[in-house]
Amino acid sequence: MKKQDQQNSAKELLRKQYARMVEKVTPSSKLLEGCLRSFWVGGLICTLGQAFSDLGYRYLSLNSTEASTFGSMVLVFITALLTGIGIFDRIGKYAGAGTVVPITGFANAMVSPAMEYRPEGWVLGTGAKLFTIAGPVLVYGITASVAVGLIYCLIGG
């Protein structure tokens, strides 16, 4: 038993040593460059969203909440189109979180598997895989909102 413990700790040590070796030679992503890129692209996407929602408010006689939803919907549409013609992945490669964090990332996460899995059929391919990456987002978002609603009901309502 003791011998096995010794072997295990020797193995652990080897693994730790190797992890250090790996860390030393593995090039890391450029933090500053990545952050700058995601900052300006992400900022620009939000600004576009604001512009669309302003347009909706002014010319489509939407109230302010509807206008904000409208802005997001236009961004979703543009993302779907750019994903379809094969440009969005290049923007995402440049911007990283700049396209992931805004609603564009959510839209891209639904559109890209829907396209990719089309050969597996309309139902189990496109229909099911639409939610592979975006599904968890809805699961946790909805669950959290129900919890918030119930807590509010108990303490505030």
Binding site: S28, G96, V100, V111, P113, I133
Partner: peptide, 17 residues
């Protein structure tokens, strides 16, 4: 890509390694 990572049109970055 599809099997081990992401769909082709998914916009994400690859690490240098």
């Amino acid at each position: 890509e599809r099997q081990y990572r992401f769909p082709l049109e998914y916009g994400c970055q690859r690490t240098p390694s």
